[in-house]
Simulated scan of single mutants.
Amino acid sequence: MSVTTDKKQGADGGFVEIIKIVVQALLIAVAIRTVLFQPFNIPSSSMEKTLLVGDYLFVSKYAYGYSRHSLPFSPPLGHGRIFGSVPKRGDVVVFKLPTDNSTDYIKRVIGLPGDRIQMMDGVLFINEKAVPKQRIEDYVEGSGGQTRRIPRYRETLDNGVSYEVLDLVENGFLDNTPVYTVPDGHLFMMGDNRDNSTDSRVQSAVGYVPMENLVGRAEVLFFSVDKAPAWAVWQWPWSVRWGRIGMSLR
């Protein structure tokens, strides 16, 4: 065998090893994304101030069990969940929009199966009981001369979960609703930015969310950037929200 042939075989063997390593890395990444954690970014303000546009977070895929929506592209593998569990009221979750089963939404779980949910004069009622709502300091949006102050409140659920909500518009369109009775196997979701959230209150757009549409529970912010794309590393010193990195969402 010539030296040239040996070199060619060595090069071919090295290329094959690289392919094997890449394939293995991809399989590990898919496994982690499917079974453990999946990254998401926040594109809208419906969950302000809990989540801001430009936040990047990890969602635990194992928190509520697994369904076809746990897999990339939600393949049609049947219905239901395995190792399933019901979220706690107040959890922030990612789910597939029921009207198309492909778009990812992130909201807060407000209603569990059998619950009766209603908004009256901007106050949330769960099973005919008002959720305590305490006025706190205004949320200041913007910077410099382009700021506005938004009324902000703290709601506390009966299980002790407490979070902040914004009230952009007094007596807004969704501040008074009929009673929603959550069907079995479904959840009622709401955004924390109450007047700027298309959620379960809008039955034609979101409505009740089937349990199998759950993707996972929001756990922690691993990155946050303001008014700049995440890849613009040269802007990080002034665009990254350093104080939000590592913030727990539970």
Rank of each mutant, 00 (worst) to 15 (best):
G172V: 00
F125S: 01
L112H: 00
S204E: 15
D12W: 03
V202D: 09
R68K: 13
R217F: 00
K20Y: 09
N159A: 11
K8C: 02
G243H: 10
V53K: 13
K49G: 13
L52C: 08
V86T: 15
V225P: 01
H69F: 12
T99D: 12
D192S: 07
D138F: 04
E164Q: 15
L51M: 10
I21Y: 14
Y208G: 02
K88T: 08
T99Q: 14
L26G: 15
S102L: 04
H69N: 14
S248C: 05
W236G: 10
P178H: 05
P75R: 02
L221V: 09
F40M: 08
G65I: 04
L168T: 13
E141H: 08
V233N: 13
V86W: 01
P43N: 07
F223V: 12
A205W: 08
A63D: 07
V140W: 03
F222H: 10
L71C: 06
Y208F: 10
G13F: 01
V131W: 06
V35S: 12
V202K: 10
H186T: 09
T103M: 04
Y180K: 05
L57D: 10
I245S: 15
V169L: 00
L52Q: 13
Q24D: 04
T103H: 09
F188E: 00
K227T: 07
I19K: 15
T198F: 03
K227S: 12
M1N: 04
G145L: 03
G160S: 13
N176L: 01
V206K: 00
Q235E: 11
W234D: 13
L26S: 15
N193M: 04
G172I: 00
S102K: 12
A25S: 15
G84H: 02
R33H: 15
M189E: 08
G207T: 09
F37Q: 10
E219H: 06
T4F: 08
A228V: 07
V53M: 11
L26H: 12
G207C: 07
G84A: 12
I19C: 13
P43W: 03
L249F: 06
S102V: 06
A31P: 08
K96N: 03
N171G: 14
G160R: 10
Y180T: 08
G142K: 11
S200R: 06
R241L: 06
G65N: 06
R135P: 02
V94Q: 03
I32Q: 11
N171L: 02
M211Q: 01
Y163W: 13
W231A: 03
V53C: 09
G216A: 05
L71T: 12
L187H: 01
Y62E: 05
V161Y: 10
I150Q: 07
S197I: 02
G111L: 02
E212A: 04
G145T: 11
D121Q: 02
